[in-house]
Amino acid sequence: MQTNVDITLRVNGAAVSRRVEARMNLVDFLREELGLTGSHVGCEHGVCGACTVRVDGRIARGCLMVAAQADGAEVWTIEGLSDTGELRALKDAFVERNALQCGYCTPGMLLTAAELLERRPDAGRAEIRRFLSGNYCRCTGYEAIVDAVEMARGR
């Protein structure tokens, strides 16, 4: 069985080549190989959403993909999307509305919310709640997050 894989991908706009263990998942690759620690590890079985990143334009769980699957992909993380300013309206709304407390789920929540605003720009509160229901937050009770998404949409 092949245990190492050579991969080349773009992460936050920059080309990256690495030899990785075949079993290494994408979020461990981003955190441990590239030092992109903004994507968090919460459950490692695809439930909590803390490791959400953007792969080829769609959100994906960094714990449910192995890094080898990202060969040739375009990956964006919270760090890159913060630098480009794409998440600024959402981030500002989250801060203003206190839609984050400990902040551990927040990068994943922001990436999911950004996709929601792109795909369902007219979503009402119930639909926002459903769209975000794959991202676990223990701190806020979610109401502030729903408010912040609505606030960001208007900006």
């Binding site: 919270i78 760090e79 981030k91 990068p107």
Partner: peptide, 9 residues
């Protein structure tokens, strides 16, 4: 909060 929201905690 801004630091945490940018994944820079």
């Amino acid at each position: 909060a801004p630091r945490l929201a940018e994944g820079r905690g």
